[in-house]
């Protein structure tokens, strides 16, 4: 799946790949504004429903990322308008949504990267992965992790650093985020 060339989704397998690569990034991007994971999830499911319906006739000229960014953004706007009576989000957030540009999809990028990091973590050695997880996901300090695992703080630092470097290498090999 390339992100740069014009794109046509030819099969269910290809569609599934797009879905798997973009579902969580889109949910997190949308959730930043909607601030409700269930609603965000529904908006993204709807985004993919629309894409599914169009997939046979659609040729994406810009990039898949840009296309999905715009579709999700529009689906979010639809959703908010449709549920106008229920005040879903703050005016401030609403304003931010209406100000989102069509062409600049960099708003989605950090979430794609985070998703790729999560996937790449699966390739880390178990111990290395666990220390990285404790540090990044649970926000424990090096001291806390050291105490928890009964290892030295130095060893925790080393592990986190090694995981970071390793993840960079994995991503360079497996992902297109650095292209």
């Amino acid at each position: 799946m390339t992100l740069k060339k014009p794109i046509k989704i030819n099969s269910q397998e290809e569609f599934k790949e797009v879905f798997e690569n973009y579902f969580n990034p889109l949910v997190n991007f949308i959730n930043q504004y909607v601030q409700n994971i269930e609603n965000s999830r529904e908006i993204v499911q709807n985004t993919f429903l629309k894409l599914w319906d169009k997939k046979d006739v659609l040729t994406i000229e810009t990039s898949l990322k840009n296309y999905l960014y715009r579709s999700a953004k529009n689906a979010m706007i639809d959703y908010i308008r449709k549920h106008e009576k229920v005040k879903l989000i703050s005016d401030e957030k609403e304003q931010l949504i209406y100000n989102l540009p069509d062409t600049d999809d960099s708003y989605l990028s950090p979430y794609i990267i985070r998703n790729e990091i999560l996937k790449a973590m699966e390739e880390l050695k178990p111990k290395n992965k666990e220390i990285f997880r404790l540090s990044k996901f649970e926000g424990l300090t090096y001291e806390e992790i050291a105490k928890h695992l009964n290892i030295s703080k130095r060893s925790v630092e080393d592990n986190v650093a090694r995981a970071t470097i390793k993840l960079k290498e994995i991503l360079l090999r497996t992902s297109q985020i650095f292209d």
Partner: peptide, 14 residues
């Protein structure tokens, strides 16, 4: 990688 890892805590992986 370093920078985005810091935000994994708030990333919701469904």
């Amino acid at each position: 990688v370093y920078y985005e890892s810091k935000h994994l805590k708030t990333f919701k992986a469904l």
